[in-house]
Nucleic acid binder design. Structure first.
Lengths: 206, 206
DNA sequence: TTACTAGTTGACCACATCGGTCGAAGTATG
DNA sequence: CATACTTCGACCGATGTGGTCAACTAGTAA
């Protein structure tokens, strides 16, 4: 790990991308260091020179992934915004940007969470749990529920809205699958998303 | 395969359950026949006596799975029902019962669909595709859209409703996770589900 | 030129697991 | 006792694993 940090950025990125990609697609035991060095176009020796063991590489990646998510979450999600849909908008944009900039990050973190017996030290596990916890509370607490229609419980309104946005996002991902994003196109998708949110507002707000 | 059909039901079920479970959790190449015989509590020799190869076992399982799904789909989904939510109700009940009676069936079929280069012969692949196609059309075509509220396009109303039901179902699964189902409890969940549907009706119908 | 260093490689190691085989032991029937 | 049918799991060659290490390269200093 000592020498890894001093590598030129391009090679560092190649290695981390390859490793995150591999760990995103397979659980820890099935993820192959052979596959990682092949995709990163480095010799096997180098990987074990930078990281003494597969486990050390894994923990390094989890740490970096959590770091990125922590930074972005703070940046995108405003816990003081009382309007539910407005807050969901931030969360949706967060997801979109993560998908664009770090396509494998969500899958990677997902795999870490799914791991049967946690492969990570307590300190990392705690950060991971905190992130999950914060993700929920920062979305659903401190919301001004008086704006919602009265004939459905506020709790249920929030669930229905988030399920709808989730479904919309999933459909969008399928539509975008494989497409290379030009910024201009992206803007039109965001436009469409905002109209979708206004529909939800019409349906679920007074 | 000749002798397999003549086994006593209990052993047959043990083997099929074990095999479907294994193929549901891993893609074809990673699924282990060793694991299957262990879980089914039979010797390895027997498995390769009933099915000559892993591939033959796999194809047999896909055929049986499709058979079950085809039967149940016909039984639960009424393509002539013009009310959208009513039709979704049938589909939701189908899913619930499959989860109860054949817990690994959905995952198994999902894995078959995900397989990069299809491991199944054309005849099976065609049945699989037909099932997926029918699943979509039988849910969304021939619906009486005049009942929907006018300020949102009918297409979008149907998506919103199905996303909401999907979210509800997923939450229910988490709640039920690990719980052993007593029929009585089950009824109360169905009751709750019907109230949920009536909420959706209030929201999305005129 | 020579000597030393730092970076890099992939053949190689012991081990595990894979799909599949097969000789032998067990059981039932005659 | 003999014959036939089940059943088992040790075993096979092939493949893949995380990790090592002798050897090669390129640059620098004397």
């Amino acid at each position: 790990m000592k020498t890894f940090e001093t590598l030129d950025e391009a090679k560092k990125k190649r290695i981390m991308d390859a490793a995150i990609h591999e760990f995103a697609e397979h659980p820890y035991e099935q993820a192959s260091t052979n596959q990682i060095v092949k995709e990163a176009r480095i010799g096997k020796g180098m990987l074990f020179h930078y990281f003494d063991t597969k486990q050390a590489l894994y923990e390094y990646l989890v740490d970096r992934a959590l770091h990125v998510m922590e930074e972005l979450s703070a940046q995108y999600i405003d816990g003081s915004e009382p309007d539910f849909i407005e807050r969901m908008k931030g969360s949706a944009k967060l997801k979109m940007d993560v998908y664009r900039l770090h396509p494998d990050l969500f899958h990677f973190i997902g795999q870490v969470v799914l791991e049967k017996e946690s492969k990570i030290p307590k300190a990392l596990a705690a950060r991971l749990e905190k992130m999950q916890q914060d993700g929920l509370t920062s979305l659903f607490s401190g919301i001004d529920t008086s704006k919602f229609r009265d004939d459905v419980p506020a709790e249920e309104v929030m669930k229905l809205i988030s399920w709808s946005i989730e479904g919309y996002g999933k459909e969008l991902l399928v539509k975008l699958d494989g497409q290379t994003f030009v910024e201009l196109e992206m803007d039109s998708y965001i436009e469409e998303f905002y109209t979708f949110l206004s529909v939800l507002r019409r349906i679920y707000y007074k």
